[in-house]
């Protein structure tokens, strides 16, 4: 299996809803319709034994974008699912930590650093952020300046 055959397999299952894709030698990037996101994660994690490498969060002008990186180690394919999260007063998306325990810390870090709420997350408490920082201070957002760091 390579990125193109894996994409074809996914297209066979999800059709046009798989959305825009981009391929490289060992990489596959997918921007699916949000409604199939959970099914897609399930297909990659459960059926294809994908390993959740991590989730990267991008702070773009209009939206936040979450990049779920799954490694299919046996096939040498790194699949990345791109999921936009609307930038409003309370940006939020669904958690995957109930299904994949490894996502718990990753989502906690993103919640603290970018202020994205993961609905139904099993442990919404601080992991990394300094006690001197407010709950509403999100250091990894683009509009956060290092000078905003309070404390000593």
């Amino acid at each position: 299996m390579n990125p193109s055959t894996f994409r074809e397999e996914l297209t066979g299952r999800f059709g046009w809803k798989l959305g825009e894709t981009e391929e490289k030698e060992t990489r596959l990037y997918i921007t699916p319709q949000p409604e199939i996101f959970e099914d897609l994660v399930e297909v990659i994690f459960e059926e294809n034994r994908g390993r959740l490498a991590t989730i990267s969060c991008l702070d773009e002008e209009e939206t936040f974008r979450l990049l779920y990186h799954f490694a299919l180690d046996e096939h040498e394919i790194m699949v990345t699912i791109k999921l936009p999260v609307e930038k409003d007063d309370n940006p939020s998306t669904k958690t995957i930590a109930r299904k994949i325990p490894g996502a718990e810390w990753i989502e906690r870090e993103i919640r603290e650093m970018f202020g994205i709420d993961f609905e139904d997350h099993p442990a919404k408490k601080r992991l990394l952020k300094a006690e001197s920082l407010d709950d509403e201070a999100y250091p990894f957002r683009k509009d956060f300046e290092v000078e905003d760091l309070g404390g000593e």
Partner: peptide, 10 residues
């Protein structure tokens, strides 16, 4: 944890 957080990504 978090005692070693240095903001390297930023």
């Amino acid at each position: 944890i978090g005692y070693n957080h240095r903001g390297i990504e930023k």
